[in-house]
Structure formats: C-alpha cells, structure tokens
Design a protein around this nucleic acid. Structure first.
Lengths: 325, 325
DNA sequence: GCGCGCAATGTATGCGCTTTCAGAACAAGC
DNA sequence: GCTTGTTCTGAAAGCGCATACATTGCGCGC
C-alpha cells in the first residue's frame, strides 16, 4: 500500500482512504491511486485490515452437513444476502455432534468473524459461553426456542409432526408407521407425529429409525421392514424427509402396493423431485430462502445496531398436499 | 495473550509457544498456561497470528454452485483432508460466470489464503495473473488441461461423451437425442457424444439444451420436446446429468414408453438415486471423493515443498451399466 | 572449577493495515 | 485582515500475535 502511494505521489494513508471511502480523497488523487493500483497489481491485505479495524468482514456458518441440499439452500440465501453487504463467508461442517461443534466454534471464533450462523439450538455449555464471550451477533436457525444464544430464526419441528398427524387422521387413517433418518430434529418430528396420531385415536405400529443420512435405500428398506417385520399391511407412513418418502414410494411400486390407496406417504422438505416423481410426494415445506434471508436480516440489523430486531422469528411451514397422501 | 501470560507468571511469547508447539515449554509452565487459558476463556486471534506469520491456515474453494451435490461432495472430501492438516475452509460461489469468478478471486485473495481450489480450467486473463501473483498453490479441478495455472486434478469431459457414444453404438443404437443443462462442461460432454455418435454411423436427431441448473422438470420437458418437436420415436438419449436422466425416465413412464426398450437413457454423475430408481440409471461415474482428496494431496505436497508433485492428475471415469441403457 | 551445550524463557521488532489527531490550504463571512 | 469552517492530506500509534535474537540457568565432562 505504501508502494502504491509512492507511485501515486501520496502517503499510504491516502491509499487506504481511497480504497475504503473514495469520497474522502480528491478526484485527481483518486485517479492516480487507481492507476497505481492497476500498474502494481496491488491486492489489499484483508488480514491486516481486519486486525487494525477489528472488523473481519467475515461471517461464518456451521451446518451439520454441507452435502445436504436442505442446509445448502438455506445457507446460500444467507450468504448471498450477507455478500451484498460486503461480508465473506466461512462454511464449516459439524456433523451432528455437539462436541465436534464446540471444537469447531472455538477454531472458527479464532478468525474473529463479525457474525455467526448456527444450525440448531442445542449446544454445549462451553460453546454457549464462547459464543456469548465473542460478543458478536449469533443466529440459530432451522429450529426454534424461547431462549436463543442471541437470535433465532426457524420453525417448530414438533409442530410439523403434529400437523402431519392431524392431516393423516383427517384423511381417515387409523394405522401408521414411521421411517426416520438423520439428526435429532428428525426424531422430534417423528415423536410429535406418533404422539399426536395416538392421541387422536390412531395406532403407530412401528417406528423405523436409521442413524446417519437419509438415502433412497434407507427409505426402501424402511417400508420393507415395516411390512415384513412389523406386519404393516397398509396405512400412513410418516417419513422424516422427502428422500425417505421417495424410497418408500419406490419400494411400494416394486411390491405392487398402491400409493396412496394402500400406503399413504408423507415427506419433509419439499425438495425439487418431490413434485416431479409419480405420484408426487405430499410433504412439509419450509421456505429455506426466506429462512436464510431472515437470518441475514436479523444479523445485519444487529450489526447496524438497529433497535427493532426481533429476537425470535418463526418462519412457519406448510403441508403441501400431493399424490402420496 | 499477554493477560494469560501474566496470570501464568510468564511472558506473552511463552504463551504463544505453548499454543503453537507445547514441547518448547516446560511441563509445569504448560500446565499453568493451560489453566490460565481456561480461567480467562482466552481464544487466540488467528488474524493477528496470520499477519505475523504470513500463514493464514486458510484454504479457499470456488465452486459454480454450492447447492449442487456434485461439487459439494468433491469439496467436502477436499476440505476434510485439508482440515486434518489444520486448515480452515472458505467456500465461495462463482455461478458459472468467469467475470464474477474474477471478482471473487480478487476478494478471496485479499484474505491471503494458503491455497486455492478452483472448479474448471477457464479463467479470465486477469484472474490467471492474480492467481500467479498470489504465489500460492492453486488447484483446478473437475476438468483437465495440459496448461494449468499450477495444479490440475480432473478428467476429460469430452472423453466421457465419446465413451457414452461408443457404448450406445455397441448396444446397437443408431438414432439419438440429447438433453443438456448446466455449464459449459455439460455442453462439451454432449458435443463429444454427438460427434462420436455421428462418426460411428449414428444420427443425432435433436439436441435439447437448457440454460441453468438441471432439474427433473427440465428432464421431463427434454424428452417431451425430443418426441413432440423433433419426432424422436425411439433410440438413445444422452443426458448431461442423472437428474435430467431421471426426468426423462419419469416422462417416458408417464407416456407409457418402455425404458430401455424403446428409449435408452444415460446420465452423468452417479448420484445416490441413480442406482435406486426403477429402472436404475446407466451413468458415468467420477469418484468425487478421490478427486477432492487428490486435490488436497497435491496442494499439501506443494505446501510441504515436496518435489514429487504431479502437476496434472487424471482421475478418469467409469460407465456404470444399469437398467436404462 | 571452568567452559560448553542445551533447554527454557524473555526482549524487541514488525506483519500491513485503520484510526485518531494534527496540519495545510483555501474559501467564505464579518 | 482576521476568524471560522471545510476539504484534503500526513504523521504516529497500535491492532495481537510470531519470529529472530539474546539471556539465563543447569548439567556435564574434563
């Protein structure tokens, strides 16, 4: 930067000003500086800038899995909005493990991000302490709580389960099974479904739970086990994701079982393929774009010290009725 | 850090050493420092560390789309390997536009990453200049070239197209259509397919090209247009991705067209669902884990100044024969 | 007992910026 | 002509660490 200044006949400070706020330097000086930057190929050192200004212009996001499209779309909306305000974006994967999340939070905080997005509301005590100590906006997404670390934008997983149970009963179903895979939130959806379905007079014959990610194979296997091992002869199948629901539909077809006549299926997520396969999947939609953008807005409001920041935002969900249930 | 030192009765340097190389500090001192860190909740400032040491311990990856599972899995393998060596991971999205990529490279370089992964081999002249000027390992992936910026790990897209054409002809097909969506690489696969298919005596009746991401809807529409607008009555359909191929299969089913009897379909990517749907998709597999890991190895070898770094690595591909062709 | 080497620690410096604070030059107002 | 305000620029300090170099203390061999 000093070298650029020499070339332009000004001091290093003036170059700094030209870069951060061009209106602070005279037009002629600005032109000379710009030319000098061009000639030298100067790329400012954001690390030094961050150290001096105590603003890293970096926001970090922690997601359980970067290959899961559900988180990816949410995080994309978040990062796009933040980028419009000049922030860069550090993505880390926690893999569903709070201990791992804690370690990652520690290393991530060492980069002194200006804000942080976390997926989920359950963190270790030490993690909460570090987050509070960091004194930056923290937004927890994809779930909802009354006592967030700082900000929270999400929806109630239990509520989706209950809503699906009520939907199933309203459609006349009295027998159900569940196929679940993934994280603790998927389990909460399932449990809420089962409880509500039972409350309303239905019977949950079996619950098939998988550890690890939802795959088509696990969906197929889920229905197979419901039928072969739990004697499930027909009824409603609550799946914790569209992928599992798709697998259930495939397995039903392979066995010549009518969907939704004999087996009705619900998914979760409203992924791209849900509307396209045959029959299209009845599912729960959460607007992940809105969620990501709302999270960004909340963070930006905090950073801008705007006072009207709602601490907790419920973005809700919607049951999309299609062909499978 | 100085405060931690005071509490532990040592100087700031000793704390620094305790953190970066515990063996340089006596066991008793180390214990006192660790305790002081615990008490104060000290989180080292990696920004200051990076400025002083000129090593940011940050690697950046640029992908066209973070929501595309194909890039996500590759990048995940890369980042996992890099994390084992203490590197953190900055992910940016370029959106298929070289100009945008150039801007992003500039801002990303301002963070002084220790290495950089780029998707694709086509960059603006200015981008290449900046990358060379940054004097860090740069690895271009997901394509292959003889003249990489620095390192290259990938495969030949044209080669996959030719291989599929030869496969189709070997299966007895003489008429074909193509459905393509996505980036320039998808187009290269298609063009190589069409050229080779024609060379071998076949006829390509129509090529349906979409701008933008591959979706099931575009796959369905692709087959519909081949049939309704190009008079495609049967033959081989080359799809530039598994998602499109899936869409073609769905549309064929909806129209009562036999797959693979009347219409044979090939995809690309070997995604999770390809093996699970009915009939399972014949596709081109590229080992994205190996690709990501190889890219990381190449970068680590460069950083470690190991001399035996192969500049260009071809990870190849494989045609997976399944039910659709 | 002396010098030597090694382990453990400290001092000083600077990484490349941003941020005060201060000064210079100039126009406007009385 | 003097003050006052405004615009532009520069000098100096310091952000929180890592690194080079210096210092201390100790055990060892002779």
């Amino acid at each position: 930067m000093a070298a650029v200044g020499r070339l332009a006949g000004v001091s290093q400070v003036t170059v700094s000003r030209a870069l951060s706020d061009p209106s602070k330097v005279s037009p002629e000086t600005l032109a000379r500086i710009r030319e000098a930057i061009e000639v030298t190929g100067f790329v400012p050192n954001a690390i030094a800038g961050a150290l001096a200004s105590r603003r890293s212009m970096l926001v970090t996001a922690l997601v359980p899995s970067i290959t899961n499209i559900v988180y990816a779309t949410m995080v994309k909306a978040f990062s796009n909005r933040m980028r419009e305000h000049g922030y860069q974006f550090l993505l880390s994967e926690t893999g569903f493990d709070p201990e791992e999340e804690e370690r990652i939070i520690a290393t991530v905080l060492s980069r002194r991000p200006d804000a942080m997005l976390l997926t989920g509301i359950h963190h270790t005590a030490q993690a909460r302490k570090m987050l509070l100590g960091a004194d930056i906006p923290v937004v927890e997404v994809w779930d909802i709580t009354d006592s967030p670390v700082d900000l929270c934008v999400g929806f109630s997983h239990a509520e989706t389960g209950r809503a699906v149970a009520e939907y199933a009963v309203a459609k006349g179903h009295r027998r159900a099974g569940t196929v679940t895979a993934g994280d603790a939130r998927a389990l909460r959806r399932k449990e809420a479904f089962s409880r509500r379905f039972t409350e309303l007079g239905g019977t949950v014959l079996a619950e098939i739970d998988h550890d690890g990610p939802a795959t088509l194979a696990r969906g197929r296997e889920g229905l197979a086990r419901l039928i072969d091992m739990a004697g499930f002869a027909g009824g409603f199948v609550h799946c914790s994701s569209d992928v599992l629901a798709h697998g259930v539909v495939i397995e039903a077809h392979a066995r010549g079982i009518d969907v939704p006549g004999t087996v009705a299926v619900s998914g979760f997520g409203d992924q791209d393929f849900a509307a396209q396969i045959e029959p299209p999947i009845t599912t729960v939609r959460v607007d992940r774009d809105v969620l990501g953008r709302s999270a960004a807005e909340a963070v930006l409001a905090r950073i801008g010290k705007r006072p009207d920041v709602p601490t907790v935002t419920d973005v809700g969900f919607e049951i999309i009725t299609r062909g499978t249930a």
